[in-house]
Protein backbone atom coordinates (compact mmCIF):
# COMPACT_ATOMS: atom_id res chain seq x y z
CA UNK A 1 0.00 0.00 0.00
CA UNK A 2 2.93 2.32 0.59
CA UNK A 3 3.38 2.86 -3.11
CA UNK A 4 0.05 4.67 -3.17
CA UNK A 5 1.36 7.17 -0.62
CA UNK A 6 4.62 7.51 -2.49
CA UNK A 7 2.71 8.16 -5.70
CA UNK A 8 0.52 10.79 -4.04
CA UNK A 9 3.59 12.48 -2.56
CA UNK A 10 5.32 12.52 -5.94
CA UNK A 11 2.24 13.93 -7.65
CA UNK A 12 1.97 16.62 -4.98
CA UNK A 13 5.60 17.61 -5.24
CA UNK A 14 5.47 17.73 -9.02
CA UNK A 15 2.26 19.79 -9.07
CA UNK A 16 3.56 22.26 -6.49
CA UNK A 17 6.73 22.61 -8.53
CA UNK A 18 4.75 23.12 -11.74
CA UNK A 19 2.50 25.69 -10.11
CA UNK A 20 5.49 27.66 -8.86
CA UNK A 21 7.01 27.61 -12.30
CA UNK A 22 3.75 28.78 -13.80
CA UNK A 23 3.39 31.54 -11.24
CA UNK A 24 6.79 33.02 -12.08
CA UNK A 25 5.97 32.85 -15.73
CA UNK A 26 2.47 34.18 -15.27
CA UNK A 27 3.75 37.26 -13.46
CA UNK A 28 5.71 38.25 -16.53
CA UNK A 29 3.13 37.29 -19.09
CA UNK A 30 0.23 38.90 -17.30
CA UNK A 31 2.23 42.09 -16.84
CA UNK A 32 3.10 42.07 -20.56
CA UNK A 33 -0.53 41.44 -21.43
CA UNK A 34 -1.59 44.27 -19.14
CA UNK A 35 0.90 46.71 -20.67
CA UNK A 36 0.11 45.62 -24.22
CA UNK A 37 -3.59 46.04 -23.57
CA UNK A 38 -2.90 49.65 -22.60
CA UNK A 39 -0.96 50.52 -25.73
CA UNK A 40 -2.38 53.18 -27.97
CA UNK A 41 -2.94 50.74 -30.86
CA UNK A 42 -5.07 48.55 -28.67
CA UNK A 43 -6.96 51.58 -27.39
CA UNK A 44 -7.98 52.68 -30.84
CA UNK A 45 -10.59 49.91 -30.80
CA UNK A 46 -12.78 51.53 -28.16
CA UNK A 47 -12.91 54.79 -30.02
CA UNK A 48 -13.80 53.04 -33.27
CA UNK A 49 -16.61 51.15 -31.56
CA UNK A 50 -17.94 54.38 -30.15
CA UNK A 51 -17.63 56.33 -33.39
CA UNK A 52 -19.51 53.63 -35.23
CA UNK A 53 -22.31 53.78 -32.68
CA UNK A 54 -22.39 57.56 -32.72
CA UNK A 55 -22.72 57.68 -36.49
CA UNK A 56 -25.30 54.95 -36.55
CA UNK A 57 -27.66 54.77 -33.61
CA UNK A 58 -28.68 57.64 -31.41
CA UNK A 59 -27.27 57.84 -27.89
CA UNK A 60 -29.57 56.70 -25.06
CA UNK A 61 -30.83 53.95 -27.30
CA UNK A 62 -29.67 50.67 -25.86
CA UNK A 63 -29.92 49.07 -29.25
CA UNK A 64 -32.56 46.65 -28.05
Amino acid sequence: MTWVYVLIAVVLVVSVWLMRGRRVESGMTSYRKHIDALSSESRRGVREVNDRQRNGRRPNDTGK
Binding site: V46, V49, N50, D51, R52, Q53, R54, P59, N60, D61, T62, G63
Partner: peptide
Protein backbone atom coordinates in the same frame (compact mmCIF):
# COMPACT_ATOMS: atom_id res chain seq x y z
CA UNK B 1 -22.52 53.68 -19.68
CA UNK B 2 -20.39 52.04 -22.35
CA UNK B 3 -21.58 48.74 -23.78
CA UNK B 4 -19.01 46.30 -25.09
CA UNK B 5 -18.92 46.38 -28.86
CA UNK B 6 -21.49 49.20 -28.96
CA UNK B 7 -19.96 52.33 -27.39
CA UNK B 8 -21.64 54.86 -25.12
CA UNK B 9 -25.30 53.95 -24.75
CA UNK B 10 -26.33 56.20 -21.86
CA UNK B 11 -25.26 59.63 -20.65
CA UNK B 12 -27.33 61.46 -18.07
Amino acid sequence: VYMKGRGIVLNE
